[in-house]
């Protein structure tokens, strides 16, 4: 609570001097010259987050499905341990690996290497354990009787998973996605290390980008005055994004729980 107050109070000078609009309308991000356009970095954050969430969610859920329904017990246990272990690895270590292994690899395909793609891939690897563990936990909570009932109807394993397990664990999976999105938005170090940190709106996945978080980490060391306040303002933006995420998550899950379950006859492809 104190934190919010502080962030806002530190950001206030710039808001007063510069005005909220200029964060979006200024031609570029050159704080030294008094130009404060956050949009490219906002886009950077958005692209990297959506990209990684889009890749990590199916992979993570499939991982959990594998653990629960497909893997022989001999494989399922070590696999789960592996995922748990990865959830604990610090982001710097992921960043280091991305920098040393991934970036040169991408550079061979399409220079310069440090790019949105590298950022997305690293983020994917980082947030995958989050969604995988959440999905795993919510699959555990699916009542055994649903599974037996579905099997007794002669449904194939995949049909059971798609038609019964997924709907039954909907809210858990949803929470998992929210959590991983939050983690992806907030991630700083790994992104900083592999994304190239050029302030621009990317036009392809091979373009280097800079995210909001990386921007703060990079410039905080020497920022002064309005520049410093501008960085705090981007902190406020980040904070607002997280709050929006949490609130919308709560809102949607309430809607889902108490509202009419009206998304029935959805055709599955």
């Amino acid at each position: 609570m104190l934190i919010v107050v502080f962030l806002i109070s530190e950001a206030l000078p710039v808001l007063r001097h510069v005005g909220l609009l200029r964060f979006f309308t200024d031609p570029s991000w050159h704080p030294a010259e008094g130009l404060y356009n956050l949009t490219p970095m906002l886009w950077g954050t958005l692209f990297a987050t959506t990209g990684s969430v889009l890749i990590a969610t199916p992979l993570g859920i499939l991982s959990a499905v594998f653990c629960h329904y497909y893997a022989p017990p001999v494989l399922a246990r070590p696999y789960r341990h592996l995922i748990e272990l990865l959830a604990g690895i610090p982001s710097v270590v992921y960043g280091l690996w991305g920098l040393v292994v991934l970036v040169p690899l991408i550079a061979e395909v399409q220079p310069p290497g440090p790019s949105l793609l590298a950022g997305i891939l690293i983020l994917t690897i980082m947030i995958l354990p989050t969604i995988a563990l959440m999905a795993d936990a919510s699959f555990t909570n699916v009542p055994q009787q649903y599974l037996r009932g579905a099997a007794a109807l002669g449904l194939t394993r995949w049909a059971i998973i798609r038609g019964v397990v997924f709907p039954a664990s909907k809210s858990g999976l949803f929470t998992g996605v929210i959590l991983e999105t939050g983690r992806a938005i907030g991630e700083t170090m790994a992104i900083l290390m592999v994304c190239g940190n050029v302030v621009q709106t990317p036009s392809s996945v091979f373009d280097p980008i800079r995210t909001l978080t990386a921007n703060i980490a990079l410039e905080m060391a020497y920022a002064l005055g309005d520049h410093r306040a501008a960085l705090f303002a981007s902190g406020v933006v980040l904070m607002a994004m997280i709050v929006a995420l949490v609130v919308s998550a709560e809102w949607i899950s309430r809607e889902r729980l108490y509202g009419s379950d009206s998304e029935q006859t959805t055709e599955s492809p």
Binding site: L7, M220, F232, G235, L238, M239, V246
Partner: peptide, 15 residues
């Protein structure tokens, strides 16, 4: 719990 660590960093720096 969901706030990015960098924001904590900002706060720590200021406070």
């Amino acid at each position: 719990a969901g706030v990015p660590s960098i924001v904590f960093g900002l706060f720590g720096n200021a406070f």
